[in-house]
Each structure stands twice: as C-alpha cells, then as structure tokens.
C-alpha cells in the first residue's frame, strides 16, 4: 500500500468505523424493538389470565367467569393441519416445476406471475372465494373450508421460496447426479430438493406462521364454534377468530381472554416453528454446508 494514496489518519478512520457500527446496531435495535414490544405487552396483558383451565376448557356462557380456549386451540391445529397438507405439497411441487422442469418455458412464466398475484390477494377475498366455492355448494360452514382457504394462501409463499432455494443449488450438483447415471426426476427428488431443504423448510414455516394468525379467511369458512369440535365438516373455532370475537365484545372478562389467546397464539407459532427446526436439523451431518 502506498502511503500517499492511503494516508494513515487513524483517528478519522476509527471515528467512521464507530459511527457505522453504531448505525448498524441502532438499525438492529429498531428492527427487534416492535417484536419485543408486542410480545412484552401481550405478556403484560395476557399472562395473568392464563391458567390450566385456559388450555383445558371451552368458553363459558356470557356472565359466567372463567372458561378457556381449548376448542379454539384444537380448532386452529386442525385447520392449520388441513392448510399445510394442501399448501406445502402443492407449493413445493410448483417450486420444483418452476426451478427444475419448466425453466424458461411460457407456462413457468405464467405460473410464477399467477403465484405472485395470488400472494397479493387480500385475505378477505380469499375467504369470500372459498365461501362461494365450497361453503355455498355444501350449504354449511366447515373446518375443511377454512383449511382450504388458508392452504391456498400458503401456496404462493411456499412455491416461490422453494423455487428460489432450488435455484441456489449449484448446477455442479445436478451434473454430478446425472453423471453417475441417476435419472433426472430421481436427481431432483433425492439430491436437489434435499440440498435445498433447509431453505424450503424456512419458506414453509414462514407461510405457516403467516396464515396461523389469519382471521379474515376464516370468517366465512370455519365461522367459529363455541363448543368442542374436531369434525372437519362442521364449523370450528380457531384462535384468531376467538380473539376477534372476544376483543370486540363489551365484556372485560372476554377482553382478558382475548389477550391471553393472542399470547398463546404467538407462543404456539414459535413452538411449532422451533419444533420443526429441531426435528429437521437433527438429520444434518457435521460439516455439511
């Protein structure tokens, strides 16, 4: 290094370094602050109403104190299960098509465009569409219809992240598989998809977490239910719906339950995401990149 090109002014350099680092730290804090704030406020408002009853009992009639959201927790789990069964396979399948088989084709461009548009469809519109397509012909609200609405909302996120993650797998890996006589479809399923799986799982988790808190698509589909139900063909309670109803009610008791419900919803999402991460990370070998 020539010293006249790069004069050693260490004071100014240290100041710049300090300033930029401080800005980065500040930005990080600003990003994390809302999350910590919301979670803290939920704990403050909701933790006191949490009890064993909250997880074990259903809602009590108006006027009686106590009661819980057991039916809503079970309902959410059921609806999200149906949604995942629809959204994850279809989304990943679409992503595989876009990245591996349809590259450069007109169909792929159309699918990609459609997925992006679908991603921007307001959730209330999704609820209304499923109402028209499933609830009206069947003449009743159902957990199944709610699951379909959320499942379709998961598809574009899962599809596009799967595509991105598959495209990040180096071509050398595909060639390695083809070069030892592995058929293309087999290479896609066993090699490329597996190599991209950590990213694809993240995409699925994002989609799951996003729809787990959705209320609007469930209003005209799952409807809600004050009683315990695990029947896919009947209206069913879900945490966001229950929170919505309780929060709009005039009763203090229900307000407290709504806060507790919101806290539980967030905790359950974090638990579900962590569990999937834990289970899927155990199979990964030491030193794998």
């Amino acid at each position: 290094m020539r010293s006249d090109l790069f004069p050693i002014r260490s004071r100014a350099r240290k100041l710049t370094d300090y300033a930029v680092t401080s800005l980065a730290v500040l930005a990080t804090l600003l990003v994390v602050a809302p999350l910590v704030g919301i979670f803290g406020y939920l704990v403050y408002k909701g933790a006191s109403s949490l009890s064993l009853d909250f997880f074990l009992k259903g809602p009590k009639p108006v006027g009686e104190s106590g009661g819980g959201m057991a039916n809503a927790i079970a309902g959410s789990a059921l609806v999200l299960g149906v949604a995942s069964l629809i959204g994850i396979p279809l989304g990943i399948g679409g992503g595989i098509f876009l990245a591996e088989f349809g590259r450069g084709t007109k169909l792929a461009t159309a699918v990609r465009f459609t997925a992006d548009v679908l991603n921007g469809v307001p959730s209330i519109v999704m609820g209304l569409s499923i109402y028209a397509l499933i609830v009206l012909p069947q003449k009743h609200f159902s957990a199944f219809a709610g699951g379909v609405a959320l499942g379709i909302m998961m598809i574009p996120t899962v599809c596009r992240t799967s595509e991105e993650m598959l495209l990040m797998v180096p071509n050398a890996i595909r060639e390695a598989a083809l070069g030892i006589g592995v058929p293309n479809w087999r290479s896609v399923l066993s090699i490329t998809l597996k190599t991209a799986s950590p990213g694809i799982i993240t995409g699925c988790m994002l989609a799951f977490a996003r729809v787990a808190g959705e209320t609007a698509p469930l209003l005209f589909t799952a409807l809600g239910n004050s009683f315990w139900s695990t029947n896919l063909n009947e209206p069913i309670a879900a945490l966001p719906l229950q929170i919505y109803v309780y929060a709009l009610s005039p009763y203090d008791d229900w307000h407290r339950l709504a806060w507790a419900g919101a806290l539980v919803l967030i905790i359950l999402i974090v638990l579900a995401v962590s569990l999937v991460r834990f289970v899927t990370s155990r199979g990964v070998l030491k030193g794998a990149s």
Partner: peptide
C-alpha cells in the same frame, strides 16, 4: 469427474460413494 469437486453436500462420505447405486 468434473473440474471442481462436487460431492453431494447433504450426504455422508459413504452415501456419496454409494449414491449412484442407491439412487438406482
């Protein structure tokens, strides 16, 4: 054999060698 080494990153040493047979 390619210019840059391209082992399957998600597989063990054993599975890398066995891949051509296993996947068939």
């Amino acid at each position: 054999v390619f210019q840059r080494p391209n082992p399957f990153p998600t597989m063990s040493i054993y599975d890398n060698v066995a891949a051509g047979l296993k996947l068939n």
